[in-house]
Design a protein around this nucleic acid. Structure first.
Lengths: 333, 333
DNA sequence: GTGAAAGCGCTAACAA
DNA sequence: TTGTTAGCGCTTTCAC
């Protein structure tokens, strides 16, 4: 029963040409007479021949697959990027090997190695917690890596992002304009450059511009989960904080519901800005005001950039910054 | 600069043994003297040798990668399954090629072919809209396919699911117990067997058991999106419907918010049951009552099942049914 | 316990 | 325009 044995050699024999010619029609090489091509195509069809991509990969040193390292597919932010990546990958005839890393440098290093042993033509990296070991792996990498929606301040690979500093600064400015003077900055791990070096910076800049003193007791580092937010809500309120900039939508949703369930009204008593505008920002009530990011596009552009690099095309901008916006919905006044 | 050229041949030469021996230590073959092994290992380390998985795949006819076909990574239901799949895949040293299909039979057939040409060792299929062409591709497949959280009534591949009939029946029963007699059944495409042949069946069985007449005007087939739900809400209310069983959480969240925004109170005026208990069921307010499914486990068990089949181990249950529960939160009385 | 050698199925010079 | 022929880097008999 199990066939999967018809090879390029079989179709060569059946159509009375050489393997080389079959290979040519397979690869759309121009130098084949139309009649020959037709015959070969007919045989391919008849024999139900499917080229073996592994053999092809070995011979050509190209696998037409790219690796995608993602913290967690289940996270709406990253899965949106992943969707953009896959769509563009498909458009350019690539497949993606998807690997969850949980933002864990060990896992990231491991998977980076596995991907390379699988000879992927390129890698898209999402994740923010990059340590020296991982950085070393990056440099050692024999294939191009582009970062999507993720930053590392001490290693500059090609990347696609928005301006996180300005975005958070804008949010904070608005919160100050609304009359708040105790504004919390609430993020996931501050070991992540995106939080520590960009978002927190934007927050501080805004305070400074507005003559508000920075108070590190207003900086909350927590797990980036709904539950963490939910549990944090009460203590925020008890500390007389009246507003917060949150770097993660699930976390923000948790805070929001945590407040609501304790009869603290958002936005009357407490204003909330979140950062990623994923689906849930619109699903919770009140709807979350947020930075708007072109999530799908970040992934799509990153993949497009990678195709260019893999093709050795000239790219004039290795570090793409896409535009962002701010939408004030119902969690701010 | 670009190396990636050290091959098994290099380490064989450097360690003064044959390629065969190197291959043996690489594959943990027992028949190698410890001293030889140590020497080889040392050289591997020194040369920073990484086996080429593509070459290995060609020679061994095993790629240690499996294909995963998913309607949309962005969907919380499927991404939860995908996470379970990836974790177990990693545990068994497999990688996954992830491909979005949008539940589109054309795309599914295409990607099924691509995956097989890439010589994946197996495939996990998620999606419910299976047409004859796709079914033919399934049968023609040279590698094992298991379905996760997805059903096809006319083709029985190995699968992992819950009992959708009973689950929906239970929900509907409760809604009837609560005094509703106009209960809507609201689902995504009824071309999908999971909706048409299972969930709708459970709905009907419940009505019958309770002596309520079935009315096909209460069956709503719509896009399975938040917006579709949001827009549907008002007409539901106008039709004097007082409760609904919804097959998709985003859809349910849309209905919920659509109601709320039009001052129809859930659950006082309208009761809502949803089906997948994804994250959003707990994030919206009021929180959605739902069937509880072991989403991660469905994926994990499916992947485990696939490893067994790939290994040609005996499996006694090719169609696994996992348990479900019902949780009544705040969208029901 | 180890080595020699024949492939795995394809691509890519190089000839013709 | 087409064919011949080396490989690509590894696994896997089959000898020894």
């Amino acid at each position: 029963m199990e066939k999967q044995n018809v090879t390029i050699y079989d179709v060569a024999r059946e159509s009375g040409v050489s393997m080389a010619t079959v290979s040519r029609v397979l690869n759309g090489n121009s130098n084949v007479r139309q009649a020959t091509k037709d015959k070969v195509l007919a045989v391919i069809n008849e024999l139900d021949y499917r080229p073996n991509a592994v053999a092809r990969g070995l011979a050509s040193k190209k696998t037409t697959t790219v690796g995608v390292i993602i913290p967690d597919v289940t996270d709406g932010y990253f899965s949106s990027l992943a969707r953009g990546i896959d769509d563009i990958a498909t458009m350019y005839k690539y497949n993606i090997i998807l690997a969850n890393s949980d933002d864990n440098p060990e896992k990231e290093a491991t998977v980076l190695n596995t991907l390379q042993s699988k000879q992927v033509d390129g890698i898209i990296f999402m994740g923010n917690e990059i340590n020296n070991k991982l950085r070393a792996e990056f440099k050692r990498s024999s294939c191009p890596i582009v970062m999507a929606g993720s930053v590392d301040t001490s290693y500059t690979s090609p990347s696609v992002n928005i301006n996180y500093v300005d975005a958070v600064k804008d949010e904070t400015n608005r919160l100050i304009e609304h009359g708040n003077n105790k504004i919390a900055f609430i993020s996931g791990s501050l070991r992540q450059a995106i939080n520590k070096d960009y978002r927190l910076k934007g927050y501080k800049e805004s305070l400074k511009d507005n003559g508000v003193d920075f108070d590190d007791k207003l900086v909350f580092e927590t797990e980036g989960t709904y539950d963490a937010g939910y549990n944090l809500a009460e203590s925020l309120w008890k500390q007389k904080i009246t507003a917060a900039v949150v770097t993660n939508d699930e976390l923000a949703a948790g805070i929001l519901n945590g407040m609501t369930d304790r009869n603290i009204s958002v936005p009357e008593d407490f204003e909330l800005f979140t950062s990623n505008n994923t689906k849930i920002a619109k699903m919770v009530r009140p709807q979350l005001s947020s930075i708007t990011q072109p999530l799908y596009d970040i992934g799509a552009v990153a993949m497009r950039l990678l195709t260019k690099i893999m093709n050795k095309e000239k790219v004039d901008d290795r570090n793409v910054i896409l535009g962002y916006g701010i939408v004030e919905r119902k969690s701010t006044r």
